[in-house]
Computed example of a mutant assay.
Amino acid sequence: MSGAAPRHLRKLGLLGGMSWESTTLYYQWLNRLARERLGGQHSARLVIWSDDFGPIAAAQAAGDWDALGRLLATAARELEAAGAEAILIGANTMHKLAPQVSGAVGVPVVHVADATARALRAAGVRRPLLLATRFTMEGDFYRGRLAELGVEASIPSADERTALHAIIYDELIQGRFEAASRAVVVAMTERAAAEGADGVIFGCTEIGLLVAPDDVSLPVFETTEIHARAAMAFAFGD
């Protein structure tokens, strides 16, 4: 819907580069949503922090989450100092550090799991499959938060989790999108559907680059879009 710009379109701060493939999607979605709402030449008001993902991925693999928490907390303070009125962490996995980010700033952190849970509940989905990195699938910071909001997410088997994690880090983050890997992810989703899953969460921002909603039989919840919509709702003061 087009129309006059709101009196104050709030500025968003995006913690990006994790990976830059997904940050590109966030940038596109945020600006697309601003244009859809306001029309014409309008775009989102953004400040973006983006770091080299190589050392971040190495720290993840080493389990050095304390160092990563300090990194994101410092970055969030920089975004707030640059005028950000809310913070987005542009990666599902790095929401493991949402408490550190939230504690470092005085502005809200728009949490991807909260936005995803609202979208799932609105669609009547209560038993979705969660596809994500191993850190997100196996940790409690994401599934536990969904459960608190009434959504009981399942995850693939241990072997499937290992395979999916490798696809994300060895292929998707590096801009590789292989048909064989798409078939692997689709097969995971169809097995979950046969076992009673009623939806699938693309809980890694790069998965949607590999698998399209039409590739699977379950309703797809693409977290990049969901998260961006929640952020822009804040920006518009909805």
Rank of each mutant, 00 (worst) to 15 (best):
T162R: 15
T224F: 00
G203I: 08
E225Q: 13
T223H: 02
S217N: 04
L210I: 14
H165W: 13
L68D: 04
H8Y: 04
D170G: 12
A98Q: 06
A82Q: 13
H42V: 05
M94A: 12
A58K: 09
A230E: 02
A84V: 02
A84Q: 14
S2G: 15
G40M: 10
D170A: 15
D66M: 06
M94F: 05
E21M: 11
C204S: 02
D238V: 14
V151A: 11
A192P: 07
A5E: 13
M18K: 01
V109P: 10
L97V: 13
A187T: 00
E148D: 12
A122P: 03
T23P: 06
S50Q: 14
Q60I: 02
A115N: 03
L33Q: 06
I48V: 15
H227C: 09
K11A: 11
L15R: 12
R127V: 10
A194D: 03
V110K: 04
L33I: 15
W49I: 09
E148R: 07
R70L: 12
A61H: 03
P213F: 12
L46E: 14
L38E: 02
E21L: 07
I168Y: 01
P219D: 08
A158Q: 14
F202Q: 04
V200S: 01
I168E: 02
S217K: 01
G103Q: 00
F236I: 03
P6H: 03
I87M: 06
A180Y: 08
